[in-house]
């Protein structure tokens, strides 16, 4: 893992402005560290993975690599929205348990790339918005609008996704026959 893309580096925080890719979700603006973004793709056919949570849309073939796709709206508990021409998939490189993985994130649309000096970023407040606060690394104001900076490593942590998925699936299926409690070994 190289230092420049590890978000926790204090030295990097002090001086060097970082670039972020901002995107829209509902009416809120979010952003992720641009060094984590491998590419931006339009929505395409995904192969669903059986017995996984609804926000795991499936898996795509990215030049021979199998990349799982997560719908951020559904992950955050927002109502699913039909995918349209503006729906995009951010392909992100995630550091997870010492390994690098590639995952896709479905968002409503990409807005732009912005450069933020560390002193423009304020720490996340303790709030209960549309988003779980633990994924937020900071807040910034851009063109009079609040920008929520997300920690993509936390957001796309497999163990966490798995656990959340289990809870969601269980909730959806309480009425139906017992779900196979897929093991995550």
């Amino acid at each position: 893992m190289n230092e420049s893309i590890s978000s926790g580096s204090e030295v990097g925080r002090d001086a060097i402005p970082r670039q972020y890719l901002s995107f829209l979700l509902e009416d809120e603006a979010y952003a992720v560290d641009i060094l984590r973004v491998r590419e931006i793709r339009v929505w395409e056919h995904v192969t669903p993975i059986p017995n996984t949570a609804a926000f795991i849309k499936g898996v795509i073939n990215l030049r021979g690599t199998l990349v799982p796709i997560i719908d951020l709206r559904e992950r955050f508990g927002l109502d699913p929205r039909p995918y349209g021409p503006r729906t995009v998939v951010l392909v992100l490189v995630v550091a997870d348990a010492g390994q690098e993985r590639t995952m896709g994130l479905v968002v409503d649309g990409v807005s732009n790339v912005c450069t933020l000096a560390p002193d423009l970023i304020s720490p996340p407040p303790d709030f209960g918005g549309a988003v779980h606060a633990e994924f937020i690394t900071g807040l910034a104001t851009l063109e009079g609008r609040m920008l929520i900076l997300l920690d993509s490593d936390r957001l796309l942590n497999l163990a966490e996704i798995y656990a959340v998925g289990q809870v969601q699936q269980q909730a959806n299926l309480d009425a139906s026959p017992p779900p196979p409690s897929g093991e995550g070994d």
């Binding site: 056919h45 995904v46 192969t47 993975i49 059986p50 017995n51 996984t52 499936g58 898996v59 795509i60 073939n61 021979g64 690599t65 199998l66 990349v67 799982p68 993985r101 590639t102 995952m103 497999l158 798995y162 196979p180 897929g182 093991e183 995550g184 070994d185």
Partner: peptide, 26 residues
Amino acid sequence: KSLESNFWKVEGISAATILGDGTVGL
């Protein structure tokens, strides 16, 4: 192709492959 390089082992699925049309098949 292993699904596990970017995901976890899904019960009932041994692996995946890429089909002739470029999509993934489990």
